[in-house]
Design a protein around this nucleic acid. Sequence first.
DNA 1: CGGTATCCCTGCAGATACTG
DNA 2: CAGTATCTGCAGGGATACCG
Lengths: 126, 126
Amino acid sequence: MGTKQFKGSPMEADLARADSLAREIFSDVANKWAFLIIEFLGDRTLRFSELRKEVEGISHKMLTQNLRMLERNGLVERNVHPTVPPRVEYTLTEAGQALRMTVDGMCGWTRRYLGHIEDSRRRFDA
Amino acid sequence: MGTKQFKGSPMEADLARADSLAREIFSDVANKWAFLIIEFLGDRTLRFSELRKEVEGISHKMLTQNLRMLERNGLVERNVHPTVPPRVEYTLTEAGQALRMTVDGMCGWTRRYLGHIEDSRRRFDA
DNA sequence: CGGTATCCCTGCAGATACTG
DNA sequence: CAGTATCTGCAGGGATACCG
C-alpha cells in the first residue's frame, strides 16, 4: 500500500512488515461476507440467529467463521449470556464502526452507479 | 441494501431486482484482488505486465479474470494498441475512480487500526 | 506482449450430526 | 440457541502450453 518511496531506508524492514500485515488484513476483511455482516450489523446488537436471517444466503458455517475472523481482528465484540438456551450477541467495535463508514461508502457507490454498471454490462456482453 | 422499509409497497418488485443486482455487484467487486487492482491503478495508466508487477502475488489468470470483470462492470477502460508486440493499457473510469475513493478509505482504515488489530489478534490467539 | 485454453489439485464451503 | 466436528463435492485458482 504505497511504501515504495522508502526503499533502501533504515525503516524498510519495519515498513515491509507493516505492509505485509496490511496486505493480510486486507485479504481477511475485503470479502463479501465480512462486508455484508458489517453492513447489516450497523450500530445494532444482533444475535447469531438474527444475523443469519439478515445476511441472506450465508450458511451457518460461513457466519461463524467470518464472525470469528472479525472478532480476532477486533472488529466485532462477542457477548455471551450464560443462560439456557445460550444467547450470543454481536456488536461492532469502534474499529468496526470506522470500517463500516467505508463499507457504507461502497453501498452508496453501488446505488449511484447501478445504472452505469447495467449499461456497461449489456454493452460488454454483446 | 436496506430497502426493508418499502416492503409491501408497489415498488417492492423493482427494489428487489435492484437489491439483488446490487448484491451481485457487491459480490463481484468486494474481493481483495479487485480492490488491490483499483488501488494500484489509481489515476495512472498501466499495461498488463506493469500491473502484474505492482500487484504482487497475483497470477496471470487472476489478473485477466479480474480485469475482465472490472471492464464488464465499467470500472476500468481497456485500450489495445494494435502494434506488435501488442500493448494493452488499463485506466480507471469515472465509476472506477469513485470506487477508488472508498478503497482508499479502507487503506487508511488499515493503517490507522493496524496496532489495534495486532493487539486484538494477540489477545484472541491466547 | 497479452490472452485463451487445458489440466489438475487444493481448499473452500455446504450438508449433516452431535454437544453444552 | 450457538458452536464444533466430520465428510464430501466441486470450483477457484495455479501451472503450463500454445495462439495472434
